[in-house]
Design a binder for these strands. Sequence first.
DNA 1: GATTCCAAAATTATAGATAATTTTGCGAGT
DNA 2: ACTCGCAAAATTATCTATAATTTTGGAATC
Lengths: 222, 222
Amino acid sequence: MAKEKSETLPVRISRVLAERIISGQIEPGARLRQDHVAVEFGASHVPVREAFQRLEAQGLAVSEPRRGVRVAAFDLREVREVAEMRAALEVLALRHAGPHLTRAMLDEAEEATRAGDNSPDVRAWEEANRRFHRLIVTPCAMPRLLAAIDDLHAASARFLFSAWRSDWEARTDHDHRAILAALRAGQVDEAAIILARHVQWIGSKPVRTAAGGTRDVFAIQG
Amino acid sequence: MAKEKSETLPVRISRVLAERIISGQIEPGARLRQDHVAVEFGASHVPVREAFQRLEAQGLAVSEPRRGVRVAAFDLREVREVAEMRAALEVLALRHAGPHLTRAMLDEAEEATRAGDNSPDVRAWEEANRRFHRLIVTPCAMPRLLAAIDDLHAASARFLFSAWRSDWEARTDHDHRAILAALRAGQVDEAAIILARHVQWIGSKPVRTAAGGTRDVFAIQG
DNA sequence: GATTCCAAAATTATAGATAATTTTGCGAGT
DNA sequence: ACTCGCAAAATTATCTATAATTTTGGAATC
């Protein structure tokens, strides 16, 4: 019906649904009903089903035969799992990217770090943070590895948004600057070590809720 | 029509096609035509399209919008990429699995190693090899990580089969035994180091072709 | 002889329709 | 009041049909 710009329908649907799942707009465990999604996008359920397959492959949805597909649930265990996988894969990517990093790329990464420090909300911070991480690993030129890292970032972002639902305070990201400093000095190994620790850093932090009390949430950085 | 045993149709189709792609039965770059696949499985193209989405997510097929899907091509660069990803992720998995490995599991892994050494063909060797690798990492209990490793193993197997198409000679796998020895001694770090080197070991080896000449192929071990 | 163009055939992508299964709501029985 | 079971509604999964796009083959042209 509407004129698309060469982006295939299942891709578009899965991308929009992925954004909603990541941002927490759709709750974990919520059912994704193909007909409802179809009418919303003015499509039929065939492309919707294909979109569901994509979401499942990304780990954002789970499908039970004959019983439909639900938004994937997640717990602290999986948060840790994703963090460790990110650490392993991003370090690998950085080691290969290191030799090909130009001064211009590092400047761009520093700009992303600044943007993160000045973010007004989690959403903006997450976007800047992801830009930083992607910039320093992209030159590895390993498409499969980069795609895997992207999927893990999506999962990370999901956890992040679920933790800091409402309150947010910006803070300067010392790890990012330390990584950049090491890379500028040509010390890729040193940068990789900091990156691994940075990504895996998962702690616990009391957060003021809207009601005025405090609750303990896990904190994700990087 | 036919009675299904609770395995969903797209899953079944994608699994069969994946086997063919991995074994080299379908050549890289070959077109996968939905109607042809559909009639072969006695189905329509709707479940076939969903199967194609799965294959694409696994990295076994690539889809160009409006132009159909083809079996993914691969080159030496990607072989190396997959090997390095495997090394990074399997080491991570082994580190977590280490403390939970029981004597019985290690015995089973040793049995898999023996089976590999006595394999009559590549196919059998690959199956035993995969069993070994899966056995020693499974106790990490990280489902997402294990799924990622499985996909990488599928890619590895593909490369393996394309290299050793016809000739094959069994040989004893010293690395597997060294890994087991280290694990039995409780030296998980040592085992992880050997595993990383083992998986990444990619060399070059002259292979006799059916025509009688020799050509240079890459060799994969692990 | 090679190239370009056009029409026919094949193929992809989506829509609409149908069968089968699961969920839901309500009433009967305890 | 609670549970069990059955019937109605909703939903999934698949098939058939249709529109749109790409590929293919051949004839006309340079």
